[in-house]
């Protein structure tokens, strides 16, 4: 991959203002997020930690436009997400956001190459397949182009997911426990790739993780507890570059 996104802009890449999320359940309303204020600058590598059920994934879903907050303002990559329709949110994600999930979420009936090509094809890229091939080469899977997800190991599937997430050179990469279903060695390799690719493109990284070592590699760690930001501190650790 070539080029780096310029981080000359002084506008935050992510701004959340008093964001709340309440979901209904049989037992009554459940307050997932209880007033989140957060600012992330372009190029930052930010980890999100916290106990299970704290609201980490919900926060990430809101930033991705996959979940609508109950109240509050969400602004990502100079786009205010409030009030945007489903289609507009889809286009927003296509143009600005890459996502990596713990469960990979590859389309099982598409080959590795086809999975990576999806966002490129949706954006109308005529050389989508060729670009997908090069993305897979970058993650070391040029020998698995025509394999289906069911024929790949967990680590390989996650690398395919990574290649897909970076296919459009996104402004922002969101990762929800990307190593949660991998062994430590494989997870380490995936994280290395993630940081490497982010540095190459200049992508801002928002990463949920349970692993302290991974969190420390980021510029900043946000701790979420019971729907609120409990701490928001700068790490002393090195970033991928």
């Amino acid at each position: 991959m070539s080029g780096m996104n310029s981080s000359a802009s002084i506008n935050p890449i992510i701004t959340l203002s008093d964001v709340r999320l309440t979901l209904n359940s049989d037992a009554g309303p459940v307050n997932i997020l209880r007033g989140i204020d957060l600012t992330i600058m372009p190029g930052e590598k930010v980890s999100v930690v916290g106990p299970s059920g704290a609201g980490k994934t919900s926060l990430l879903m809101i930033v991705a436009g996959l979940e609508q907050p109950t109240s509050g303002v969400v602004r990502v990559a100079d786009v205010t997400l409030d009030g945007l329709g489903e289609d507009a949110l889809a286009l927003f994600r296509r143009d600005h956001v890459g996502i990596v999930f713990q469960d990979f979420h590859l389309i099982p009936t598409m080959t590795a190459m086809e999975n990576v090509a999806v966002p490129l094809e949706l954006a109308g890229q005529q050389d989508a397949i060729e670009l997908a091939e090069s993305r897979l080469e970058a993650v070391g899977l040029d020998h698995r182009l025509t394999h289906y997800p069911g024929q790949l190991s967990g680590g390989e599937q996650q690398r395919v997911a990574l290649a897909r997430a970076f296919a459009m050179n996104p402004t922002l990469l969101l990762a929800d426990e990307p190593t949660g279903n991998l062994d430590s060695d494989t997870g380490e390799r995936v994280i290395e790739l993630m940081f490497q690719l982010s540095a190459e493109i200049g992508t801002t990284l928002l990463l949920i993780t349970h692993e302290g070592a991974i969190a420390k590699r980021c510029d900043r760690t946000i701790r979420i507890d019971d729907g609120l930001i409990a701490s928001n501190g700068i790490n002393g650790g090195l970033n991928a570059c």
């Binding site: 489903e86 994600r93 296509r94 979420h105 999806v118 966002p119 949706l122």
Partner: peptide, 13 residues
């Protein structure tokens, strides 16, 4: 499932 994943990566309805 396919529709949801496609939506995540930019497919409109």
């Amino acid at each position: 499932y396919d529709a949801v994943v496609l939506k995540v990566f930019g497919a409109t309805r």
